[in-house]
């Protein structure tokens, strides 16, 4: 299986990428790790006139801490998040999610930004970004925008990104307070997309109450879902079993799954509930064990 023919260019500078995108509009496709785009090209589901490879642009890779944020270059490979072990204790959910994405070989190529921009409703990073309240830095020839993760995912493979924009960075706020999180994914085998997954990120206040809770759901709707009602019911509460169960129930209700070969809608909704419940317990335990 081979792609249809296209032109290819790999500029060395971001400006060049941006001007190519503004010039070619919808005819152009950005190529990052290629682990979603190339399969689509091979299946001829995508047939761009020109492929703009951002692989040669400097400064788009790496995980750094700066000004109360963890900043992840858009072209950072899944694999490099997986090995960013100093995120443990701050952003557990990233470290737990990364190794569950596709398989070790795909993780060596695929990028966080590519995954977020691709916006597969079953893509794992979307749910994680919603849970941790990430912001996406996107650039075009016309300038820069910073888009919150909440609201970014609009539908299957559709986002707030414009066709002339490139995502350059993902910023995740890491405030004071003890935090914990985790990612639970139901997959049929390694390399499978999620049937259901849940990202959970909890910050405890000095009083031991839940300061904020972030919950993202994967593969149970037209796009990654932020379970806002569940988050709200947790905020400011003592982390009791009852509160957790109620939040999990609400998260299950926030899911909008469709029946398919992986299971019925009821099944997926229930697994979302179970995962959020388990995830909250783990996240809270971790946060309670973490140093402030």
């Amino acid at each position: 299986m081979f792609p249809a023919a296209f032109d290819y260019i790999a500029p060395g500078a971001l400006d060049e990428v941006l001007s190519l995108l503004s010039q070619h509009g919808d005819d152009a496709k950005v190529l990052a790790g290629g682990q979603s785009l190339i399969p689509l090209l091979k299946l001829r589901f995508a047939a761009p006139v020109i492929v703009v490879d951002i692989g040669r642009v400097d400064g788009l890779e790496g995980v750094r801490r700066e000004n109360g944020h963890v900043r992840i270059g858009a072209r950072t490979r899944h694999r490099d998040v997986e090995s960013a072990s100093d995120l443990r204790g701050t952003l557990d959910v990233l470290l737990d999610a990364a190794p569950l994405i596709s398989d070790p070989l795909i993780r060596n190529m695929g990028t966080v930004g590519g995954s977020v921009c691709h916006a597969d409703p079953a893509g794992d990073w979307g749910a994680v970004m919603l849970a941790v309240g990430a912001e996406f830095v996107v650039k075009s020839a016309g300038g820069e925008r910073v888009l919150p993760a909440a609201g970014f995912f609009e539908g299957p493979f559709t986002t707030g990104l414009h066709s002339d924009e490139v995502m350059t960075e993902i910023r995740i706020p890491v405030g004071a307070g003890r935090s914990g999180g985790t990612y639970l994914k139901l997959e049929r085998k390694v390399g499978d997309f999620a049937s259901v997954a849940a990202a959970v990120h909890v910050v405890l206040g000095g009083d031991g109450r839940i300061a904020t809770a972030g919950i993202g759901l994967c593969a149970v709707g037209a796009h990654s879902i932020k379970a806002t009602a569940a988050e709200a019911v947790l905020a400011g509460q003592e982390p009791t079993d009852a509160v957790i169960a109620e939040a999990a129930r609400l998260a299950g209700e926030a899911a909008e799954p469709k029946a398919d070969i992986r299971g019925s809608a009821e099944y997926k909704r229930d697994v979302a509930r179970v995962f959020v419940q388990r995830g909250l317990h783990t996240a809270i335990n971790r946060a309670q064990g973490a140093a402030a």
């Binding site: 049929r188 299971g263 019925s264 229930d270 697994v271």
Partner: peptide, 8 residues
């Protein structure tokens, strides 16, 4: 035997 069948 998939997980959804066992769950059901």
């Amino acid at each position: 035997i998939t997980s959804d069948k066992v769950w059901a």
